[in-house]
């Protein structure tokens, strides 16, 4: 049985796709088409299923009816007003949280004493689900924008604080030594070394933070009520108008996409030295 058979393994030249432009173009077109076609087909299926009664249209109204309701809401002026209010709450809280979080992160990153004094307390508070403190803020500020902005600020603060502090602590000594050897300290050290060295990591924190800021705003609007995209979704449920809820959900998603996209773009703009993996592979 055990007859050994000698074989020759040949590594044949198989042209990589990149060297065959026509094949490559066809492949790229297919990929792009699939990316759009899959969700379109699924939404189409939903539409047909809702219209033919295969699924309960009260829970899953036909996408077209949600779109129509959304357009109506824009014409009524309600939707844009709610978008404006939600965006305002997200952005004010986000900016405040970022400023305070960055200052705390840099301060604690650069000063071991400050870190020893504040880190245990902040780390303990970090584990508190932020939405849990909304009732406190509601009591303090009453039913207005203020408690929502406050809770977004607190949430974003923790993200930016931790990303900044860890980035500052992780700055390789070599960079600090290189600057120190030229007599650099204090503000110049911050400006030329600490700030730019921590920026890529802070940009990640900002990107994560903006998503969480929107999440917290929408969920707070469920509770606080009165206005905002979150309230719109929640209220539609109460009135059993789920087309409105779906229109609200899509709106919330769009706000998220726009915010994330903007922050990501800004992040790349302020850290031009961070070369992406793809462009490095392309030999740049």
């Amino acid at each position: 049985m055990n007859t050994a058979t000698a074989t020759t393994v040949t590594r044949r030249n198989r042209l990589p796709l990149e060297t065959r432009p026509q094949r490559l173009r066809r492949r790229r077109r297919l990929e792009a088409t699939l990316g759009i076609a899959v969700p379109v087909v699924l939404i189409g299926l939903w539409e047909v299923a809702a219209r033919l009664g295969w699924i309960n249209a009260q829970f899953f109204p036909a996408p077209s009816s949600s779109v129509i309701r959304g357009v109506e809401m824009i014409i009524e002026g309600r939707l844009l007003a709610d978008i404006g209010i939600t965006a305002y709450r997200v952005l004010v809280g986000y900016v405040l949280g970022t400023i305070i979080g960055f200052a705390a992160g840099v301060g604690m990153g650069m000063s071991p004493l400050l870190r020893k004094a504040l880190e245990p307390m902040l780390s303990a508070l970090y584990t508190v689900p932020k939405i849990a403190i909304l009732p406190i803020f509601l009591t303090i500020f009453g039913f207005s924008d203020a408690p929502i902005i406050a809770i977004v600020t607190v949430t974003v603060f923790f993200y930016i604080w931790i990303y900044t502090m860890e980035a500052v602590v992780a700055i390789p000594n070599g960079y600090l030594d290189a600057a120190k050897s030229f007599g650099v300290k204090g503000w110049a050290m911050f400006r030329h070394v600490v700030f730019p060295a921590s920026l890529p990591s802070v940009a990640v924190g900002l990107r994560v933070g903006v998503g969480v800021a929107l999440l917290i705003t929408i969920s707070s609007e469920f509770i606080v009520g009165g206005s905002g995209v979150g309230y719109l979704i929640f209220n539609a449920r109460a009135l059993f108008r789920l087309e409105e809820a779906y229109a609200g959900i899509v709106t919330a998603a769009l706000i998220g996409v726009i915010l994330q996209g903007t922050i990501t773009w800004l992040g790349h703009r302020v850290t031009p030295w961070v070369v992406s993996r793809e462009s490095r592979a392309a030999g740049l």
């Binding site: 000594n173 070599g174 290189a178 600057a179 030229f182 650099v184 110049a188 030329h192 730019p196 030295w273």
Partner: peptide
């Protein structure tokens, strides 16, 4: 230095200028 000498966030010219700027 052997490593971490020059700053990746500064261009070549900015790096060479660094010791001048801060002094």
């Amino acid at each position: 230095f052997q490593d971490y000498g020059i700053f990746p966030w500064k261009t070549v010219l900015e790096n060479v200028k660094f010791g001048l700027t801060v002094n």
